[in-house]
Design a protein around this nucleic acid. Structure first.
Length: 228
DNA sequence: ACCCAGGGTCATA
DNA sequence: TATGACCATGGG
């Protein structure tokens, strides 16, 4: 019942192959610039993307989607623009901190020079940037080979018996990376596909054990047995 | 009237 | 190390 290490790795790889087969390449992140990508990563924290996208549109409409323009805004002004994304006062601080980080790092080009682990530690110093947000930025803004451990990955792979699900983030990331051993573009698809899948699958329904990455299989119609 | 979303910080034990 | 409170809007 409990898969061996080799079997777990095969399950993980097979799952992403299936997701790619089902949905096709996602080619993330949806953004027009590196800065928009990074701001979006903060705004979507524990928040539906549609809400984060509204806040991004507000910033674009005001043409303040750059570090210096963000810092030129008053605290209340910025918070007002971010309101649709929720936690707006909190996120105003975080977007400001991100902007200041970019300035002190010499912009995108300056940060790009750093080694991945060094860059990661630097990102984690930003107030409001935790492990997942740092990894998302590393992957989608700086094109570094990183596996992003999000809530969906925890749910899906704990459901498949690959992990428990409550392990620390810093344990799971290298754990998945050692099973996958992929490059930036492949990890790009991994996270994008798993999020895409979560949107497609009916919420409040547990992911199916045998067919976790397809909709319209038997699990989609089951009402009970939602426990565990 | 709930539940949840592409998390993170801080206080407490 | 590990919980719990808190942050807040919008859609189902």
């Amino acid at each position: 019942m409990t898969p061996t290490a080799t079997e777990r790795a095969a399950i993980v790889r097979g799952t992403f192959e299936g997701l790619l087969d089902t949905y096709g390449p996602q080619s993330w992140w949806p953004a027009d610039s590196w800065f928009e990508m990074m701001v979006g990563a903060v705004l979507t924290q524990n928040t539906a993307w549609t809400n984060a996208a509204r806040a991004l549109q507000n910033l674009k409409g005001r043409k303040v989607l750059s570090p210096d323009r963000i810092l030129g805004l008053g605290p209340d002004q910025l918070a007002a623009l971010l309101r649709p994304s929720g936690y707006y006062r909190l996120k105003a601080d975080r977007v400001r901190a991100l902007s200041q980080w970019l300035l002190k790092s010499g912009g995108y080009a300056g940060a790009s020079v750093l080694e991945t682990e060094t860059l990661r530690l630097s990102l984690l110093e930003i107030k409001g940037v935790g492990p997942e947000t740092a990894d998302v930025i590393l992957l989608y803004a700086f094109d570094r080979p990183v596996f992003v451990v999000d809530a969906y990955a925890r749910r899906l792979f704990s459901r498949l018996g690959v992990i428990e699900g409550d392990e620390p983030y810093e344990y799971l990331r290298p754990h998945f990376e050692s099973m996958l051993c992929l490059g930036p573009s492949a990890y790009n698809e991994c996270h994008a596909l798993i999020v895409r899948h979560a949107k497609e699958v009916c919420r409040n329904v547990p992911l199916c054990e045998t067919c976790p990455f397809r909709r319209n299989c038997a699990h989609g119609n089951r009402k009970s047995e939602t426990k565990r």
